[in-house]
Design a protein around this nucleic acid. Structure first.
Lengths: 141, 141
DNA sequence: TCAACAGTTTAGAATGATTCTAGGGATGAA
DNA sequence: TTCATCCCTAGAATCATTCTAAACTGTTGA
């Protein structure tokens, strides 16, 4: 079996990842994690992911999509990006980077961290610490 | 009458401002513009402003609050700041600046434009132009 | 001054995303 | 296998926001 390509042992990496995050590897979480973490980094909404799961033949309720997305985010496996009131994107790229937001299509595009430099940041207000700095470059035609 | 302080001729500046923006100076818009533009710069939600209007004895429907906020924003009198899914803030400061977002209280604080420097910004994707660059510094205790 | 049109406001319904609820199901330790 | 615990689910509920249709107001021109 050692010659099997990855699609023949589809669960290994994802299960380890879930366990490492302290999340029980349930059928639903495994399926969603596969969709999210195997392959390229992506930006998805809850509805997007719900549709993909259905398309992949996996039956998952929307409530579970929301739960999982938040659990993955809390566990540091993804992060939430807010660019438009009323809709949240979840980003599988947790590394140092920022975003272009295409106002006409509503889509996000990564900007690698080394392509943006934020300097002269003022100190956090007393007693507070900086959790994250988000840079959103809004573009349109 | 030339000695009257501004609270005795409360409408002059605000009416000119509305007319200049191509907006008919109606009773509601005048009242909201007074709350928003007289005094310090502020960050308000639609609900905030609705509450303030009521407290000031002005009867304005929530729909009109939303309409006005969007009209003021479209006219360049304010701008919208999105930091949390599900809630929009409107900012009366249209100048060059960014924001601290206090994750524990849900409030915004201005960072003057000269206290942040964003450099090495990549070019906008082909055919697109940059509308705005937002920097949000998320802080918490 | 006043009619009359266009722009505004409004209450309430509708929408859309997200969260909650309660009950049945799956998981993992022993 | 057992059982306590954690999960999942359908559907209801919630929240911010937008829409609708009808009533109202500001402005303009006679």
């Amino acid at each position: 079996m050692t010659e099997n390509p990855s699609h023949n042992r589809p669960y290994s990496g994802v299960i380890a990842r879930l366990k490492g995050a302290g999340l029980r590897p349930t059928r639903q979480r495994i399926a969603l994690a596969k969709l999210l973490f195997e392959g390229e980094n992506r930006h998805v909404t809850a509805e997007d992911l719900h549709g993909e799961a259905r398309a992949a033949g996996v039956s998952v309720s929307l409530a579970t999509i929301y739960n999982s997305l938040h659990q993955f985010t809390d566990a540091g496996l993804m992060r939430e990006v807010v660019v438009e009131a009323g809709r949240s994107y979840f980003d599988t790229n947790t590394g140092d980077h920022h975003h272009f937001f295409h106002e006409d299509t509503g889509s996000l595009e990564d900007i690698p961290g080394d392509q943006i430099n934020v300097s002269e940041l003022p100190a956090a207000p007393a007693g507070k610490s900086v959790q994250r700095v988000d840079v959103i470059v809004r573009v349109s035609a």
